[in-house]
């Protein structure tokens, strides 16, 4: 299947992303009345730098460290048996016991909700948290499951032909940016 992606528009730059992160760091602290019992968990791959950055901003604001974990949801995907190829499994690394904790699950784009569904199942197998909240960089709509984000940096209405691409320094190199791409057959 030869689908090319053509860039349509850049919708965020590094500075916009940084400001959004600071804003939701404040929202997280405010809603949870501090940092007590918080654990940030990033979904591989681009949720991981987001969780790490949020932890850094929270520490800057509150002066307290929040533990950060990494979740690989490959084993929980609901599309495994319909894929041509298995995705490579990576390690799940959650440094603290999550029972009774408030988990902030971080990912780059919220779309169908299936990734978050898998992440919820994966988390439940690790223990019984008191609460799970969800933070995303982009919410592009088109949910297929009853799932919503608690913290959104930017809402972007999209068509299904479009693809959101997030570039994050830690993974992609270069400057942070978010783009809308369009699929073109050929």
């Amino acid at each position: 299947m030869a689908t090319n992606l053509v860039e349509k528009a850049q919708i965020m730059d590094a500075e916009a992303i940084r400001r959004g992160m600071v804003r939701i760091a404040h929202e997280i602290i405010e809603r949870n009345k501090g940092t007590e019992g918080l654990v940030l968990i990033g979904i591989r791959r681009r949720g991981v730098p987001l969780a790490q950055r949020l932890a850094a901003f929270i520490e800057e604001i509150e002066g307290r460290k929040v533990p950060v974990g990494v979740l690989d949801i490959t084993l929980y995907r609901d599309d495994l048996t319909t894929r041509t190829d298995q995705p490579v499994v990576h390690r799940t690394e959650v440094p603290v016991a999550i029972a009774g904790k408030t988990i902030i699950l971080a990912d780059d784009v919220l779309y169908t909700g299936r990734t978050i569904r898998a992440a919820l199942d994966a988390l439940m197998d690790l223990g019984r948290p008191a609460q799970i909240q969800c933070a995303v960089l982009i919410d592009r709509g088109h949910r297929e499951l009853p799932i919503r984000a608690d913290y959104v940096i930017k809402n972007v209405p999209t068509s299904k032909r479009e693809v959101i691409e997030c570039h994050l320094t830690e993974i992609d190199g270069g400057d942070d940016k978010v783009m809308i791409m369009e699929k073109s057959e050929g």
């Binding site: 084993l75 495994l80 048996t81 319909t82 894929r83 041509t84 298995q86």
Partner: peptide, 14 residues
């Protein structure tokens, strides 16, 4: 087990 049974043959990769 994962590598042999985890996937299948039809083509709907995302």
């Amino acid at each position: 087990l994962y590598l042999l049974l985890g996937g299948a043959t039809d083509e709907t990769a995302d």
